[in-house]
Every structure is written in structure tokens, then in C-alpha cells.
Design a protein around this nucleic acid. Structure first.
Lengths: 342, 342
DNA sequence: GGTCGAGTTTGAATCGTTACAATCATCTCG
DNA sequence: CGAGATGATTGTAACGATTCAAACTCGACC
């Protein structure tokens, strides 16, 4: 049914090798012949078979991108950066969603490796380090996204330590002395780092972290879990004196969920609780109470990562692994305000 | 470098055919032999080459999904529906972003066809009908997403006519008699249908559409264009009597952009302008003024579409094209309120 | 002991493309 | 006019898997 090069060749009255040349080395073939071949392709609706090409050539033209959550605007923004760069270089991107689940991640990585993608960009879940090492050893370049990785890879990251510090230092400066830290699984590196940053900010201010910070852990970084955190926070309320007057959520989805649930419960933000989020997704600015958030250069992150990956893929031999670390920036909005006097 | 079936075969002391059988017809192979082969695979870190497999077998195990905008939560939610279903059936999804641009769409469709994906799910841009027809004719099943398509495809859609009607009928019921219709390119079917629905609601109420509706067209369906629409709306203001008291935006991103810009300009929502959006994305409920919106069953849309596609791909011969049309639902929130008395 | 059949395993042909060495045609120059 | 150089085209051997008819093994049965 589908026309192959052989059909094109015989219709154009040339050898298959010539057809191949028209596709891959047009300069080698006489313009007149080329025109004839191209006409034949057109007439037959010829579409080259990427599998065959890739099989023979040994390398494909797809990249894999594995993110923790496609529904998080942070990642779609990163994805666009990746995609735009890749597209410009003639690559297609296979976007996979690990959903923060290790088995889903592993399954996708397997598929990508079977596809012999040119390389993989990934925000890894947790103990996936050995899986990723395996990939590398078998020859697939990997760039770690949004996470300063171990040696042996390129990586592109934002300084999460600093980000966490910025957020909490801001709350401290506003006078808050009891701060809830709403955080995802520490197995996710970003979560761990932002937490460390938070602690650093407190000790840096000469305060006792254990007295200031109340940790609330949620299993995933989405709005639903943010809402659950609100309930947990509310449950602390009777405790009186020790109740947090502010919360640092390690991403905006958590913050938005928290915010929504709190308003449902009739609490005031920032009056009863000041909130700082992380990522500065577009919607943060539009939320019921505009959200103070730590901004990351999302699009640029994706672009840079894609660039590093393609560099490595094109010249694996002389490639030297590099790490980019971008600096986050605090965007102050209404959701964080001075604490009512203590 | 990478181990192939030949290596596995010789290590296990069997023929390549047997290795292939272990992979594809394990029941044909004596358990003892199978174990030996599996051990060899393990030892060599053998990863089958999908290109070779697909080349020989004629069919791959990837689906293509082409959406108008990955940054729109509506589409990521649909994508999750597709992905979950596909994953369960053993398929991987290649997610592509046409950005509402015809050439980007065409490029991606080309890539997908070269990859010989098992089928394509798409929210088409505009005059892409011929391109899509070509795909079908050459044998790639296509399911139209979120758009009741012409015959020759399966399609999964939400009744946009009804959705538009719901939105505007709601505003009319609230007493609004001058309504702005903030809409994307009419070349996008959903935009055209929602608009028709809006007109229908007005005539259905015995009013003159030209007197009631003011159309504001924007080139893309994102927050930025929504903000631009606000400016355009503001420019109408001096006109006095004819100024809209409400706006129906054909998606939530537009509505959110509009809302943001209006508050920056100091206007009150819904006091100065009531707003109704479309899609009911998660963030609509969390926005500065919680958004009234027309809800679509996004996840289910994706799942159903994937199911139809795989049905067709698995049995192209006896397949009968089907259309699913889901019914939208109006979710009323603060952004729409009774008009101040005329 | 020979035949049959079920259960296993084998090996070669094949998928559509690319790379490359070989061939052919043309032209230049001594 | 022939040798050499240059340019265009050809044909075939891979690439790594799947498929399938044929071959082999082993009991059971006559």
C-alpha cells in the first residue's frame, strides 16, 4: 500500500540509491534528475519510513522528555523551551509524564531506550539514579533537568537552596516567627533542597529552626495535596501560640490548593496566614490572592537543557559535561504581608 | 556496543529465532530454554530495537497526539486521559504542540507519519482538512478531538454550540443586554461553534444579536490575548450606552487574561463587567474572581478518543466510525452576577 | 522397529533505508 | 587521440528484528 523508495525509483527511472541521495545528499544529484525524482515522490505520496532510516543510520531524530507532572504549568513551560529548541534543530520531542511514580518513569525510560532516542531530558523521581546510570552506560545521553545532578551528566537547574532561602527569609523579614513548610516527598531533590534552604534562612537569622518551622509533608505536588495541607494546618490551630502565621509551599500548585481550601474555611490570606509559593506559574499572579512566589526561568531552563543534550548527542567523544545553575528570584505579591504584631 | 539479539542468542546457545520467540511468543518456548535466554538478556543488558521490530512487523506502538497549546490546562488534562488509556494498552504517546499554527501542525504530522505511528489524535488548526485526509488515505487512522468532524473519522467532541448557548443564556438571564464575545480565530471549529451558540441564545431569547453582541476577535487563545481584549473593550467605553456589561470568553485563558488586565485598570468584576469563561480549568476556581465557566469532561474526552483510535488501529477492516458528543455544563461562580439595573 | 504427531528449535528470507565501492559518461589537456 | 580527472548514477551489503516453513527430538502406539 504505502509507496517505498523502490516504487519512487522505478517511476522516476533511476536506482534506489539515487532516490536516497535526493533525500540525504541533494547536492550530489543532477538537478534535472532530482526534479524527476521529486515529482515521482509527490505523485506517489511517498513518506520515508523513519524506522528503516533509523535502523540503517543507527540514530534517530527524536528526543525524550520525562517530566514529573504535565498538568503543572511549570513543566509545560519547560517543555515548550525544549520543544522549540529541538524543533529548530530538526528533532521531535516525545513527552512523557512520570506522575512522580517510579514505575511509570521506568516504563517510559524503557520505551524511550527501545526507540533509540537521541537523548533523554528528565526530572527524575527518586531512586531512579541506577536506572539512569544504566541508560548512560548503554549509550543514551541524559541531561538532568531542574536538579543539580551527580557527575556523569550535564544538568540544568535552578538553585533550589537559594530559592528556599529567599522565600523563608522574606517571611522572616516580614516578622513571621512560626512558619509552616508545606513540602512534597523529600525523595524529590528539589523538595529536599528547598527545605534545606528554608532551614538555612532561619539559622541565618539567628533563630532556632525547630521553633520556627513546622513541616507538613504531602505525597504529591498538586492542588489537591495543597488543600489537604490546609486541613492539616487547621488541625494544629487549637495548639494556640505555636500556630504558624505563614506558610512556604514548595510549589505553586500546593500554594494554590492551600489558598483555595483556606478561603473555603473562611480564613483570611494573608491576614490569618501569609503564603509564599514556588515556580511563579502564570496563574500565580491571577489567583484569588495574588501569590508571592519564587520565579524560575522555566522556558530558558528547557532551552538550555535541550541545547546541552544535542551538543552531547552530536559529539559524544569530545563532550564535556556541564552544569548550569540559574538563580531564582522572589516575586512579591499580596499573599505575603507583614504579620499582625506578635 | 549495544547488544543485539544475535549476541543474546550466542550467549544463550540458541538461534536468534528462539530469542525472538522468547520475546513475542513465550509460550512456544520450553521454560528451561526461556530462562536461559532471559538470563542472557539480563546479563548483556539487551534492549530490543524498536526500529527494527517496527520495520519488520510493519506497525509500531506509538500514538501521536497533536494539541493546540500544551500550556492550556485543558489540553494537558485531555492528554492525561489519552496517555493513561494508551499506557494501559501498551502504547506510548508522542505529544506535539501545534501552537495553533498550521505549519507547525503540518510539520508534526509529517514526523508522526514518518514514524509510522499507529494512529493520530488531533485538534486540528484550520484548513488542515486536506492534510488529514491525506494521512487517512495513506493508512494512518485519525481521531478528531474536541471537534465534531466530517465523516471518515471517528471523533470525540463536546457540544460547543450548546456550550456557547449555555454561557450566553446565563448572562441574558442575569439581565445583561450588551455582551462582548471574546473569541479566537473562527478557523478553529470550537470558536466558530461557541459563537454560533452565543447567537442562538440571543435569538432564542427573542433579542437582536447585532444589538446584543459585540465581537472581539483575538489571534490566539491565551492569557496575553485576553489582556489585549481588555484594552480593546476599554477603548469602546466612551461609546456610552452601547458598552458591554458582560463578556463571554471562549476559553478560560482568555477570561483569566481579561480579568487580570481589568483589575490592573481598576475595573470591578463582576460589577463593571461580568465574565463567563469556557473549559473550567482547575485554575478558574482559584482565580482572583472565581470564574463562571462551561465545564467539559476533559479527561474522559481523552480516554474515549484514545479508545476509539486503538479500536480502529487494531481492526481497521471492520471498524465503523463513531462520534461521541459530550454535553457541557455551566459552573456558576462569582465572576457572573446580575447586571446593575439598566 | 517404524510411523506419527506434538512440542521445540532452527535458519534464511524479508522489511525500507543508507553507505559505499564500482561503473559509466563527459570533459580537459598534453 | 588517449590518459586522467570530474561528476552522476548504480547495485548491493548491511542494520536488527520477525516470520515461517522445515528440521529435529522424543514418546506413544501399532
Amino acid at each position: 500500500m504505502a509507496a517505498g523508495m523502490k516504487d519512487v525509483a522505478s517511476l522516476a527511472g533511476v536506482a534506489v540509491g539515487t532516490v536516497s541521495n535526493v533525500l540525504n545528499h541533494p547536492d550530489l544529484v543532477r538537478p534535472q534528475t532530482r526534479a524527476r525524482v521529486e515529482a515521482a515522490m509527490e505523485q506517489l505520496g511517498f513518506i520515508p519510513n523513519a524506522s528503516a532510516r533509523q535502523l540503517r543510520a543507527g540514530r534517530g531524530s527524536c528526543l525524550g522528555l520525562v517530566v514529573l507532572d504535565v498538568r503543572n504549568p511549570f513543566f509545560t513551560e519547560v517543555a515548550r523551551g525544549v520543544e522549540d529548541y529541538a524543533q529548530a534543530e530538526g528533532y521531535a520531542v516525545i513527552l512523557c509524564n512520570s506522575d512522580e511514580a517510579e514505575d511509570k518513569e521506568r516504563r517510559y525510560l524503557r520505551v524511550l531506550e527501545e526507540q533509540r532516542v537521541r537523548g533523554i531530558l528528565i526530572t527524575p523521581v527518586r531512586g531512579s539514579a541506577p536506572t539512569i546510570k544504566g541508560l548512560r552506560d548503554r549509550g543514551t545521553p541524559v541531561v538532568l533537568l531542574d536538579r543539580p545532578g551527580p557527575p556523569g551528566h550535564c544538568s540544568v537547574a535552578v538553585d533550589d537552596l537559594r530559592g528556599g532561602e529567599l522565600a523563608v527569609a522574606h517571611l522572616l523579614a516580614l516578622g513571621h516567627r512560626r512558619i509552616a513548610l508545606v513540602n512534597g516527598p523529600l525523595a524529590i531533590r528539589q523538595c529536599a533542597d528547598r527545605r534545606r534552604g528554608a532551614y538555612q534562612a532561619v539559622t541565618g537569622a539567628g533563630l532556632d529552626p525547630d521553633a520556627v518551622l513546622t513541616e507538613i509533608s504531602v505525597p504529591a505536588m498538586n492542588t489537591r495535596c495543597g488543600a489537604d495541607a490546609a486541613d492539616e494546618l487547621r488541625a494544629l490551630a487549637p495548639a494556640g501560640a505555636g500556630v504558624p502565621t505563614a506558610a512556604f509551599c514548595t510549589n505553586d500548585l500546593l500554594a494554590l490548593g492551600l489558598l483555595r481550601r483556606l478561603s473555603q474555611l473562611g480564613a483570611q490570606v494573608p491576614g490569618d496566614l501569609a503564603i509564599v509559593g514556588y515556580d511563579d506559574i502564570d496563574f500565580a499572579a491571577d489567583s484569588a490572592v495574588p501569590l508571592t512566589s519564587v520565579r524560575q526561568p522555566k522556558y530558558q531552563l528547557g532551552q538550555t537543557a535541550a541545547q546541552l543534550l544535542l551538543e552531547e548527542a552530536d559529539a559524544p567523544a569530545e563532550h564535556e559535561h556541564r552544569r548550569f545553575v540559574f538563580t531564582p528570584e522572589l516575586i512579591t505579591r499580596t499573599s505575603s504581608q507583614p504579620a499582625t504584631s506578635p
